[in-house]
């Protein structure tokens, strides 16, 4: 078994190389996670050691983009954590209804399932026409898929159940058309979603918004990076704006905790103080 300390060093050199050459910064990601993804890649592509990956990354842009896909998480689902969406409906929609225009930033949207979920919810609440959803990710391949809005029908049963648990008011099948093994999301849902490439780690404030949705992204970051991104979110929210995190993500350890009110502690929904 290869010496763990040596391979740790090789991983940090690899991340440095990716950053210097391509500008993607994974240096403050959870190390255990990065390590697992790199080791998987080594097994799949039968590399001898991590240094070999580094050399290939530097000299082969196609391979580098494969490594980016390895390090980027695109696991998501429609109405993931249905009770969160139910709480959005009950606790946040009434606040959004008070604004003439609504801007939502969905940071780290991956392949877009949750952005479509949000669009559906807003449509049912009569708010979609005055809303813009900025759905961003650093992974362009995932963004392209999100924009297409075509998803495998294998998951539809689960999504339908999620939608119902989330307090859905219609039949979920009203929102897509089936096409062989896929479903295509309705054009009317895409209308006010702006898909944009944005990197939370290296890019700055995106826009001033009423609500930020960023779920299961921060868990991949170390504490220092989490704090940086929390500052970015704080600066992007209007006073009274809403921050929605993943069900296992907390603001409690952040320096900014005191600047928010907890709207729903369990569902991790926070409101920026005035």
């Amino acid at each position: 078994m290869r010496n763990k300390e040596t391979s740790d060093l090789e991983i940090s050199l690899l991340l440095e190389a990716i950053f210097q050459k391509y500008g993607y910064d994974f240096r403050e990601y959870s190390q255990a996670h990065i390590r697992r993804r790199i080791m998987n890649r080594m097994a799949v592509s039968q590399f001898e050691d991590i240094a070999e990956i580094q050399s290939k990354v530097l000299n082969d842009a196609t391979f580098a983009s494969e490594i980016l896909q390895d390090l980027s998480i695109t696991v998501t689902e429609m109405f993931r954590d249905p009770l969160f969406y139910r709480s959005l409906r009950e606790n946040v929609i009434p606040i959004l209804k008070t604004y003439p225009f609504i801007k939502i930033w969905h940071a780290g949207c991956a392949t877009g399932e949750e952005a479509y979920s949000m669009a559906i919810l807003l449509q049912e609440e009569g708010l979609y026409e005055r809303t813009t959803i900025y759905a961003t990710d650093f992974n362009q391949m995932a963004l392209n898929r999100a924009k297409d809005g075509i998803f495998s029908n294998k998951m539809i049963k689960e999504y339908t159940s999620n939608y119902q648990l989330a307090g859905g008011k219609e039949s979920f099948s009203n929102y897509y058309t089936s096409n062989y093994d896929n479903v295509i999301m309705n054009q009317s849902l895409k209308k006010n979603i702006v898909w944009a490439n944005h990197n939370l780690v290296t890019d700055s404030v995106f826009a001033e918004v009423n609500l930020i949705l960023c779920r299961n992204v921060l868990i991949y970051f170390d504490k220092n990076l989490q704090n940086k991104v929390q500052t970015l979110f704080y600066n992007s929210l209007i006073n009274g704006g809403i921050l929605c995190l993943g069900s296992k993500e907390s603001l409690r350890f952040s320096d900014l905790y005191a600047h928010y009110i907890e709207l729903d502690t369990k569902q991790r929904i926070f409101k920026k103080k005035y």
Binding site: S30, A32, H33, I73, I219, Y220
Partner: peptide
């Protein structure tokens, strides 16, 4: 470990959660 998350351990003996496949 919470349901629906993978659980990993970091070098500094803290926990990480992920939603990987």
């Amino acid at each position: 470990a919470p349901p629906n998350y993978h659980l990993m351990i970091e070098k500094d003996q803290t926990f990480s959660l992920t939603i990987d496949e």
